[in-house]
Design a protein around this nucleic acid. Structure first.
Length: 347
DNA sequence: CACTTGACCTGTCCGC
DNA sequence: TGCGGACAGGTCAAGT
């Protein structure tokens, strides 16, 4: 799914399209299901205010995050929302009606692989696309879509993968599509966004100005007994890295993905940091990694995968040494390596 | 505790 | 063409 560069692309595209717009209505219909089945609210001391969610959310509300900060508990907004409904599901509808409908979008931002849409109601929509999520904006003469590459990015919407549709007062639509239903959209008080477990545990942004090579090395080394690929994929270590950019940066730094983090020299770790930042920046510049059906705000297709050196290039020649790129499994994920450039360090 | 594995879903592709 | 199984750019809970 969308990793950091793809979510960044979504953010940049939506910023110019939806900021200032007012939400007129929202629908959660899931074809073949009762709408209410996917509208979940976990009330009381829990704060998972879910607009749309996979059945995962209905099955196990303990996965929803609890509000922690006193300021959140005592804030007017929080008091208001606790007054707005109780534990029962129909009140989630009240929340949607009170804090989503007729609210305007103030800003769109990204943290890790999650997207945050702040509303002028002091509530926010937090969206995670997981493996197959996508956001598609459609208005008269304007089309923008980014995320998992499928026909839904360019086809007629809503379709069978559409989970949520936001309609603005000017009749433009924003579709949240997700084939595999892993993704989620939550509506919750803005002040509680940072209290979601996902954000509390999330590591630093690799592209932020105050994140340096020494921070990178120090955080990686804390996981010295893990395979480096697993460490890169761990969102609590560094935010936003997924399978593509883990493989690409390890190839660029000539590190075998199964190398234990503690066995990698400082020089190699510095190289990995440099290559990771470079590959993320390149991908953002190219508009994300999707290689088909992907459309940016200007209607261009994303092109990153055409520049990928190893990802989904098994059987092809390594551009550096000519060896045949291999595909294996590391950390339970498909993994692409050059057997000559990336030697396993065993001692 | 640190670390790894399986489950969550749907769709597609590949071998028989 | 049909069927079974593996697999897909992520994350969390449960397992070792």
């Amino acid at each position: 799914m969308p990793e950091l560069p793809e979510v960044e692309t979504v953010k940049r595209g939506l910023r110019g399209l939806v900021v200032g717009k007012t939400i007129k209505s929202v629908s959660f219909d899931w074809p073949g299901s009762k709408p209410g089945e996917y509208l979940c609210y976990c009330g009381g001391s829990d704060s998972g205010h879910i607009v749309a969610f996979s059945r995962l959310g209905m099955r196990d509300t303990s996965r929803l995050d609890k509000p922690q900060s006193d300021s959140a508990q005592n804030s007017p907004v929080n008091t208001q929302h606790h007054q707005a409904y109780s534990k029962s599901f129909p009140n989630a509808q009240t929340d949607v009606e009170t804090f989503l409908i007729d609210s305007s979008i103030k800003l769109v931002r990204r943290r890790g692989k999650a997207l945050i849409i702040e509303l002028d109601s002091n509530y926010s929509l937090v969206i995670h696309l997981k493996m197959t999520g996508q956001l598609v904006y459609r208005a008269e003469g304007v089309a923008f879509g980014a995320g998992h590459p499928t026909e839904s990015l360019v086809g007629e919407l809503p379709d069978k993968s559409t989970r949520v549709t936001f309609t603005f007062t000017d009749e433009a639509n924003l579709f949240f599509n997700d084939q595999r239903k892993f993704g989620w959209v939550r509506l919750l008080p803005s002040i509680e966004v940072d209290n979601l477990d996902f954000f509390k545990k999330l590591g630093p942004e690799p592209l932020s100005a105050d994140f340096a090579a020494k921070d990178f090395c120090e955080r990686i080394k804390r996981r010295n007994k893990s395979k480096i690929k697993a460490v890169l994929l761990d969102q609590t270590v560094i935010a936003g890295i997924g399978n593509i950019y883990a493989d690409e940066s390890l190839w660029a730094a000539k590190i075998h993905p199964e190398t234990l983090a503690g066995k990698i020299s400082d020089q190699k770790l510095n190289s990995l940091y440099k290559e990771l930042v470079a590959v993320l920046r390149l991908a953002i510049e190219k508009g994300g990694s999707t290689d088909k059906n992907y459309v940016t705000a200007e209607g261009k297709k994303g092109s990153y995968l055409t520049f990928a050196k190893v990802f989904r290039r098994e059987g092809e020649s390594c551009s550096r040494c000519g060896s045949i790129i291999e595909k294996t499994r590391v950390a339970s994920r498909g993994t692409h390596t050059c057997p000559s450039c990336q030697k396993k360090v065993t001692s």
